[in-house]
Design a binder for these strands. Structure first.
Length: 558
RNA sequence: GCGCCUGUAGCUCAGCUGGAUAGAGCAACAGCCUUCUAAGCUGUGGGCCAGAGGUUCGAAUCCUCUCAGGCGCGCCA
């Protein structure tokens, strides 16, 4: 609908240009928006004002010229107005809105899907928590955002690859193994000093117990082989747990979507990390100083230069980043999305430096930052001291409030804004709980449909209904809201802001519930019942499609 | 000290990439159940968009500075 109108306006501007009425040196990008006030029509465009400012003419005069040249062959436009400083307000013929209902019926569970991302390959990396502990609430928000974004991009026609980067080599996993080894010894009554900076969480003891169950109580804890097996055992156990937690959260990474740093970047025969550093060296952006190898990231906008190989010959974490991002680039993605905790924003400049130094446009890299979550219980923040291992895990929150509320709540805010997660509210079976409110609209419609069926009325086909019976303002408002759904999804996809979808669903539920309250759907008037039932079912389809993108269930009854 | 994010109604937040008289949900107040789910609905009040300049036809939105809060600034991972 929007596209058709944009095309009509573009034609009108071109016509003005052809006739020499306007110069239009630079063709403006037509923005069609929904005016805030009723009475300003269904759409408004500021095109005339944009052109006027470039040509030094009065906006209203330009608007008049454009309006005169508009030729609407489709009959979609009912009325055109010039208003305010030079807006062109457009009123759509009511009959045209009704086509939306036909679109929804035809597209069904694909309504809202578009092909704006056709032939574009996108990689989205998210969670990527180190396998040194269970997922906590901060990871969970990133998981919800990343997964939903992936769903939205897929629905928008992009070729989407999800990825979880496993940091499975280096000091951290070694420390984890060592922590398990310590608990193992403790378990067998050996008094030993705990290792430095060991992982203190209870889960380490559990893993030590499992290790003992598998390998017995008499392993030679001093042998290198056994120490390695502590590391591998612990890492594998945690990865399995992370994977399980994610799946219960509705996030599924396929087998080849787990990217192991150790296997993929430090493969002993090819050593991709070395190849990547060689490439940087070829570009002349590295140097040696104090027995270390550096990357001159300052030449590409970073605050300071960064070390790639330390003087003890170890690769830095950043060296892995170089290799990993080169790997991503070489896989041929058009867009590379990293979903990061906001505490990593200091890393953005150096990652962008990798792209620039290797001769790639860093615009292909999009970073979505996830701000911290504060859990609230009875209005007070739940204390979270990660240091002593007392963080709240994803598992605990799923167990307490359920997957649906959890996912929905994480998407109720812009991802780079702090989020207060009210546990009591999330559990509440009441309308002030937004996820409940939306799901309930779906369940309520299901209930109506069931009731109608019991009264011998099934959901009619579009051709069977008399659309003129849907003549109330509320009904038109619902239809218009349903019509905007594809634009909402598009907006989410292009801005990488999935929270817009949760807001939309709340808005839709927010106009449906009052409508329901005011109007009885199933009555003795069969024709009216059919028309309203059809409309309700359209609302149901859109809510279901929206919830599906969030991976939140759409219950038939509650 | 430098960088990033945030600052909008009593609270929690939207504000569609610069548009018209700034919105929603809670909370507060006043009402509404013989009904397809009251697990719901209707109405009212509530604002110096942190502050000050600037850019222009037009700013909550863009720029500069100030204030307040959060985070980040290792040859850590």
């Amino acid at each position: 609908m929007k596209d058709i109108i944009i095309a009509i306006i573009k034609d009108a501007i071109s016509a003005c240009k052809d006739k020499g009425l306007l110069t239009v040196a630079e063709f403006p990008s037509i923005i069609l928006e929904k005016p805030k006030r009723e009475g300003f029509g269904d759409f408004a465009t500021n095109a005339a004002m944009l052109i006027a400012s470039k040509e030094g003419k009065q906006p209203r005069k330009v608007a008049e010229l454009i309006v005169k040249e508009i030729s609407d062959k489709t009959g979609i436009i009912k009325k055109l107005d010039i208003a305010g400083p030079g807006f062109i307000n457009i009123l759509i013929d009511k009959n045209c809105w009704e086509r939306v209902l036909k679109d929804i019926e035809t597209a069904g569970n694909k309504y809202g899907h578009t092909d704006i991302g056709k032939d574009r390959k996108v990689l989205i990396e998210f969670v990527s928590a180190n396998p040194t502990g269970p997922l906590h609430i901060g990871h969970a928000r990133g998981a919800a955002v990343g997964d939903t974004l992936a769903n939205i991009l897929k629905a928008s026609g992009y070729d989407v690859t999800k990825e979880y980067y496993i940091n499975d080599r280096g000091v951290q996993v070694y420390t984890l193994g060592n922590s398990v080894r310590f608990r193992y010894l403790e378990l067998h009554g050996k008094e030993v000093e705990p290792p430095q900076d060991y992982y203190k969480g209870e889960y380490v003891k559990d893993i030590a117990r499992d290790f003992a169950a598998k390998y017995g109580s008499n392993v030679d804890v001093e042998s290198t082989e056994v120490i390695i097996s502590f590391v591998d055992f612990a890492k594998d156990a945690l990865l399995a747990q992370i994977q399980k937690d994610l799946e219960d959260f509705g996030v599924k990474f396929d087998k080849d979507e787990w990217f192991s740093e150790k296997e993929k970047l430090y493969d002993a025969s090819s050593m991709p990390v070395l190849q990547a550093l060689d490439k940087l060296e070829e570009k002349g952006v590295t140097f040696l100083e104090d027995d270390a190898m550096w990357f001159r990231t300052m030449d590409f906008g970073d605050d300071k230069n960064r070390v790639l190989i330390k003087k003890d010959r170890e690769f830095t974490y950043f060296a892995s980043d170089v290799a990993y991002h080169l790997n991503k680039i070489e896989r041929g993605f058009d867009t590379i999305i990293n979903v990061w905790g906001a505490d990593h924003h200091g890393y953005e400049a150096r990652i962008r430096a990798i792209f620039k130094a290797l001769g790639y446009d860093d615009k292909m890299l999009k970073i979505v930052f996830i701000q911290l979550v504060t859990l609230l219980r009875n209005g007070a923040p739940v204390p979270m001291g990660k240091r002593e291992g007392e963080f709240v895990t994803l598992r605990q929150v799923i167990d307490e409030v359920g997957k649906d509320a959890c996912r929905f709540f994480f998407l109720m805010r812009k991802s780079d804004a702090h989020l207060d997660f009210d546990l009591e509210l999330a559990k509440k079976q009441a309308p002030e709980n937004p996820v409940f409110y939306v799901q309930y609209a779906h369940a309520r419609i299901s209930s109506i449909i069931k009731h109608a069926k019991e009264n011998g009325i099934s959901i009619p086909a579009y051709e069977e209904i008399d659309l003129s019976l849907l003549n109330q303002d509320e009904e038109l408002a619902i239809i218009k809201t349903l019509a905007s759904f594809p634009d909402i999804i598009k907006g989410c996809a292009t801005s990488l802001e999935p929270h817009r979808l949760t807001f939309y669903l709340q808005e839709l539920a927010g106009i449906f519930h009052p409508y329901y309250n005011k109007n009885r759907v199933v009555t003795d008037n069969i024709e009216l019942s059919k028309a309203r039932l059809f409309l309700c079912n359209a609302v149901k389809i859109v809510i279901k499609n929206g919830l599906a993108l969030l991976n939140v269930s759409a219950p038939e009854e509650m």
